[in-house]
Design a binder for these strands. Structure first.
Length: 189
DNA sequence: TGCCCGATTAACT
DNA sequence: GTTAATCGGGCAA
């Protein structure tokens, strides 16, 4: 059985944590799978929600590491982040895609789809499949309904520019599992 | 206060 | 390739 991720795992630079999350297992209420795509954000980064300072929405980012920051995107979708670094860094990793392995029936029902490849291949899709909403913002990642397990063995991680942003769009802070079919978009070679 | 834009997605043409 | 759905935040006035 893989090792459960301790809170100390998240108390490091967001650029160390993000690639280390590739291949880790994310479960929420017993459904989920392997993390195959993430992006790193830091408060010195113009693309980050924390860049302009603390607000009610991003307050969790300014708190201690090892907690979930869930925000509403475009007024429609929910997106899940893991807060990292010492408290006050306001850094987080956006979880962008998961290869579904557990609770397939529940995820298909919530998404209204059968195609496994499209169940969790995007930050909004992932939250819909796992039923993660703003009600789960600010919860600790080392206890239910969240469950996180370290990857059982080394994996090949690729990096590239982040998706859907206009500021600091050149930074290669998107990380993915090389060759995965479950990415929200392929990485350019 | 009002206006514009965004860490998105699905359904169009 | 384009667009609607839909709302909180930043910034100008």
């Amino acid at each position: 059985m893989p090792k459960r991720l301790a809170r100390a795992f998240f108390s490091r630079s967001v650029h160390e944590v993000a690639p280390d999350l590739i291949g880790a297992t994310l479960l929420f209420k017993g459904a989920g799978g392997w993390i195959v795509e993430v992006e790193a954000y830091h408060h010195t980064d113009p693309a980050a929600h924390s860049f302009h300072g603390l607000t009610p929405r991003n307050a969790v980012m300014f708190g201690p590491p090892g907690y979930a920051y869930v925000y509403r995107s475009y007024g429609i979708h929910w997106c899940l982040n893991f807060v990292c670094e010492p408290k006050g860094s306001a850094a987080a990793v956006l979880i962008r895609a998961v290869e579904p392995t557990v609770g397939l029936a529940a995820m298909r029902r919530r998404r209204g789809l059968t195609d496994e490849r499209l169940l969790c291949s995007g930050p909004g899709r992932l939250c819909e499949a796992l039923a993660i909403t703003g009600a789960h913002n600010g919860l600790a990642l080392d206890s239910r309904p969240y469950e996180l397990f370290a990857r059982p063995s080394a994996v090949e991680v690729v990096a590239g520019p982040r998706i859907g942003i206009t500021k600091a769009a050149d930074k290669p802070w998107r990380y993915g599992l090389k060759g995965s079919r479950f990415l929200s978009k392929p990485f350019n070679p």
